[in-house]
Simulated assay, not measured.
Amino acid sequence: MFDYEIRLLKDWIEKDNAFFDIASYELRNKNTIGEIILKNDNVIISGIEIIEKLLNEYNIQSEFYSKDGDYVNKGIIGKISGNAYNILIVERIMLNILSLMSAISTKTSNLVNKINGKTKLAATRKVFPSLGNLEKLAVLHGGGDTHRWNLSESIMIKDNHIALYGGIENAINIVKKYKSFTKKIEIEVENEEDAFLAAKNNVDIIMLDNFSSENAKETARKLKEKYPHIIIEVSGGINEENYLEYVDENIDIISMGKLTTEVKYIDYSLEIEI
């Protein structure tokens, strides 16, 4: 597990290290101990498991006092020990991953906790290349829904597919032949008429894209009355200021790109014990 991500992080570390870290070179035969310090309160921590595996690649021992998904306040969250040179070249990547993942999980948790009802808050595919799985894992640690992990996890027909296939019905009928019983078909629509056309053609999920909250609720209500089995998702133009306007008994999923694209980093530091 995390094999690809660990290879990626190691590659970044080795490129950063280049031939060697000049400032740390004389410490290559020295062992040391360091404390990882969380400098913010009210944090849903994320990134511990991946960091433990990364540190292990450099023979650095670690002991963390919290696990992914825990609510934590500022203080020492863990201790590491090993070769001083290795600890110093790993330090920045380690702290960056903890900072990013904890920021996403904390933001997700804060937003999810304000939802009163069955509607779920989900991420989107607006994630950084290579880091996407870690960002989505952080959403999961924060209590959100990950949405698709990759393109093949579900069959999602978007506006450009509809244009290239020559319409909603053609798009649905063409991709149906690739559908397994384990896969759902989702389609993105921009108006109520297209939503009902998609429902008529037996899709599993309808995404109401860039609907106002009032229009989304009304369209979702009509769809659920006739097609109660269809999952209704809303997306587009949704942020932390307006997402609660979309919470409704007929809306199953609110997906928000800003869960991963607009986050305030959580502050971590490493302090070496002398």
Rank of each mutant, 00 (worst) to 15 (best):
Y4L: 06
E5V: 11
L8I: 13
E14P: 01
D16H: 10
A18G: 10
I22K: 14
N29R: 14
K30M: 14
T32S: 14
I37P: 05
L38M: 13
K39R: 13
K39C: 12
N40T: 12
I45H: 10
I51H: 09
K53Q: 14
L54D: 14
L54S: 13
E57K: 13
E57Y: 08
N59M: 10
Q61H: 13
Q61Y: 15
Q61N: 15
K67T: 10
D68W: 13
V72W: 09
I76M: 11
K79E: 13
Y85D: 08
N86R: 04
I89V: 14
R92T: 09
I93W: 02
S99M: 03
I104P: 00
K107Y: 04
T108D: 04
N113L: 02
G117R: 07
G117M: 03
K126M: 02
V127H: 01
L134I: 03
L137R: 11
V139R: 09
L140F: 13
G144C: 11
D145L: 10
L151R: 11
S154N: 14
I155G: 05
D159Q: 07
N160F: 02
A163P: 00
Y165F: 15
Y165I: 01
I168D: 09
I168N: 06
E169Y: 07
N170W: 02
A171C: 10
S180Q: 10
K183S: 14
K183F: 06
K183H: 11
E186A: 09
E193F: 08
A195I: 09
F196Q: 06
N201T: 07
V203L: 02
D204Q: 06
D209I: 00
N210L: 04
S212N: 01
S213V: 07
S213A: 14
R221G: 00
R221I: 07
R221W: 00
E225Q: 09
P228Q: 04
H229F: 11
I230F: 05
E233H: 01
G236L: 02
G236P: 05
G236D: 05
G236Q: 06
G237P: 09
I238M: 06
E245Y: 02
Y246N: 02
V247I: 07
V247K: 04
D248L: 00
E249N: 11
E249V: 03
E249C: 00
I253N: 05
G257H: 10
G257I: 12
K258E: 07
T261W: 08
Y265S: 13
D267E: 11
S269V: 04
S269T: 14
L270S: 12
